[in-house]
Amino acid sequence: MFASIAAAALAAANPATVAEHQAACAGKDGWSDPAPPVRVFGNVYDVGTCGIVSLLITGPRGHILLDAATAEAAPSIAANVERLGFKLSDVKLIGASHEHFDHVGGVAELQRLTGATVMSMPAAYLTFETGIVNREDPQWGMHKPFPGAKVGIMLSDGFVARQGPLSLTAYATPGHAPGSTTWSWRSCDGKRCVNIVYADSVSAVSAEEYRFSDHKKYVAAFRDSLFKIARLRCDLLITPHPGASNFYDRLAGKAPLIDRSACKAYADRGRKALDERLAKEQAK
């Protein structure tokens, strides 16, 4: 029964083509620039902006949204969900990659519009609730506050978020932010099924005065996160900042969308950049 309901929902969806998406975003990559929704694979859609991915994973008993871009972007994300033919009230769970305003600034408004339950890692909980980045974050002091949202589910490493037949696993991957979360699940398009990984950012970005080399435990956790991402079963990699994984070119067929080595390569790039950052700090 679930399969037939899901097939009917997919048939009713009205995503833009990748060409239409690229035309709408030509010359734009802003975090709040509206973009039309596109289908990624099977029941997975990008409903985000030109510069930030927001994933809608749809199911016959409700949908899951991962990331919500900025506060300014919330109306366009809501409009994209409705353009696809889905009811906002059917979005039941909202999760995130990490707790910075460009990815969760729109969560509070989308929670209000949908009534969804928000999910968060413990390290991101206070930031979700207050809209203020905590002092443990390498980017503390860099970001403007955003509207706080009420967290209803506390995640943990390996937590499985379920909504009807949908099943997404959350992995704690701290590094870019303390509450960084990587998600994995399996989606099917007809008889073809793939393992999808929504891997959080792995860049060692910080406020000017922050030194990763002064935080050895944090760096060790960051390295563990990169190792974890590299080892995930990963056919289709998606990242919160699309450029980090060449996402839109891959959707357009300019590079392979399915690549089982993508998560390892992504983690390796993050490890190299972290090593370079640490070496630069030590050279000062």
Rank of each mutant, 00 (worst) to 15 (best):
A3P: 06
A6L: 09
A6R: 07
A11F: 00
A12T: 05
A16R: 01
T17Y: 08
T17F: 10
A19F: 03
E20S: 06
A26H: 10
D33K: 02
P37I: 03
V38D: 06
V40P: 11
F41C: 14
G42E: 06
D46I: 08
V47Y: 00
G48Q: 01
C50L: 07
G51H: 00
L56R: 09
L56A: 05
I57R: 08
T58H: 04
R61E: 12
G62K: 00
L66R: 12
A69T: 03
E72H: 01
A73F: 00
A78H: 06
A78Y: 02
R83Y: 00
G85V: 07
K92R: 12
A96P: 00
S97H: 12
G105S: 10
G105Q: 10
E109A: 11
Q111P: 03
Q111I: 00
R112H: 03
L113C: 05
S120R: 00
P122I: 04
A124E: 04
Y125F: 14
T130P: 07
D137K: 00
G141V: 11
F146C: 06
G148V: 14
K150W: 07
I153F: 01
G164H: 08
P165F: 12
A170Q: 08
A177Y: 02
T181E: 11
R192M: 09
A199P: 10
S201E: 06
A207H: 08
E208R: 14
R211N: 03
S213K: 08
K217T: 13
V219R: 09
V219M: 04
V219I: 10
A220D: 13
A220I: 02
D224L: 07
K228E: 13
L232M: 15
L236C: 14
A244E: 09
A244V: 06
A244M: 04
F247G: 02
F247Y: 00
D249P: 11
R250I: 14
A255S: 13
P256K: 14
P256W: 15
A267I: 15
R271H: 05
R271W: 06
K272T: 15
K272R: 15
A273T: 10
A283F: 01
